[in-house]
Amino acid sequence: MMDFGFSLSKSSTLNLDTADLSLYKKLCELSPDARTCMACGSCSATCTAGPFSGMSVRKVILDLQRGRDVKAMVQGCMLCGKCIMVCPRGINTRNLILNLCKIYDR
């Protein structure tokens, strides 16, 4: 291949046609309340680990909905459960993370 000193850039577009939502669907089977997230962000704002590890429950759910992997983010969770206290939709966020870990461990 000829080197032109530049090449096709990778597109940052999220393509829902090719997004693999199997992880999200598995999660919804175990934690159906994940679907009710309205992305208010209170979970992330209150997160103990987030500012230092990049963990964000809001982003975890959104990324799963867009077919992206969230393993690294989930590993940053300390499972303290602070996020459960603030979720206005009553999502059991701590359980959601544990369920995700279970899916990853399978």
């Binding site: 940052s12 577009t13 999220l14 393509n15 829902l16 046609d17 992305a39 809001r58 959104l62 990324d63 867009r66």
Partner: peptide, 12 residues
């Protein structure tokens, strides 16, 4: 634009 993800999005 998926403004929550901060990324452009497309779908057919």
């Amino acid at each position: 634009e998926d403004t929550l993800a901060g990324k452009p999005l497309k779908v057919t």
